[in-house]
Design a protein around this nucleic acid. Structure first.
Lengths: 155, 155
DNA sequence: GTGATATGTTGACAGTGTCTACATCTCGTC
DNA sequence: GACGAGATGTAGACACTGTCAACATATCAC
């Protein structure tokens, strides 16, 4: 998280990063954007619970990256590329839900699904769920515990 | 987020806070703990979707507090009081689900419900859901889009 | 009144992000 | 091949930060 320390560890002077990024925030934004690309690759080709599990797996495998992407210290609205990268991920999820015929409202279901896996990832990263999260199938179980409001029935 | 700035704004010297907290992290931990207490009060007496809405409402009303509580920069495991405060909130949610007879597995359902509302709050705070989140009932709709696996039916 | 404790202040230290100025290295053009 | 331009690197300085040590004052029990 510290610019000078990173430069030191990379074996360059404390000012070298400024030749590649205008400031510290821009560097972090680039790392976050790369993170969104990585996440997109993990999710690509999956759907349903599988996709949700991949989302949480990514967060647990790259906790600092994930926190950087979603930690809120990046002022997402200031970095257009970031917002676009995140939006693309959401679009893929939305498309997956639109392809299903058994869900009443794909937009709401997609928002709920993203919220579910995102919250699960965040809470696990933060160390809540300490007891249950040790079970190897915890993520699958939690994701499997929800259904989305079915089509042809009132919401 | 800056100690000296906060001291300045409070009209005291930059070292006054050290008479009350051993270091910056301890001050933040105290603020987070107070946040958990506030959140607990908001959730108290509610259940179901109502509780979920109150959770998200709290996050949107106190974005910085919420991010402090769940941002992960606090090393939750280092502050026993914090972990306990968060655990108490979860216990209340768990109790609410245990009281329901129509849910197959209260533990999983509670974990899923917390994940759902937590992720929803976090994503809204970060500015995703930009289009849909403007609808006044967005939170209720998203929460209403999920069902929990029913009792007496295979998961 | 006296001593202890709580609370506040000033001054210093190392470390940080950022700016400016200076150096070098790499090429396309003549 | 020489040269000027741009990319990339470095050193030094600045204001700022969290933290520590030393010193001051206010409160209160005895």
């Amino acid at each position: 998280m510290k610019l000078r320390e990173a430069a030191r560890r990379a074996g360059v002077s404390h000012n070298a990063p400024y030749r590649h990024f205008p400031d510290r925030d821009a560097l972090l934004a680039a790392l976050a954007a790369e993170g969104f690309r990585m996440l997109g690759e993990e999710l690509d080709g999956r759907s349903g619970g599988d996709m949700g599990e991949a989302y949480v797996r990514f967060a647990l495998a790259h906790p600092n990256r994930f926190r950087l992407m979603f930690g809120g210290q990046l002022e997402l609205r200031k970095h257009a590329g970031l917002r676009e990268a995140a939006g693309r991920t959401y679009e893929a999820l939305l498309a997956a839900f639109r392809a299903r015929r058994d869900v009443a409202n794909p937009e709401r279901a997609a928002a709920a699904a993203w919220s579910l896996v995102h919250g699960l990832a965040q809470l696990m990263l933060d160390g809540h769920f300490s007891e249950g999260a040790k079970r190897p199938d915890f993520v699958r179980e939690v994701i499997g515990a929800v259904r989305f409001a079915a089509a042809q029935r009132s919401a």
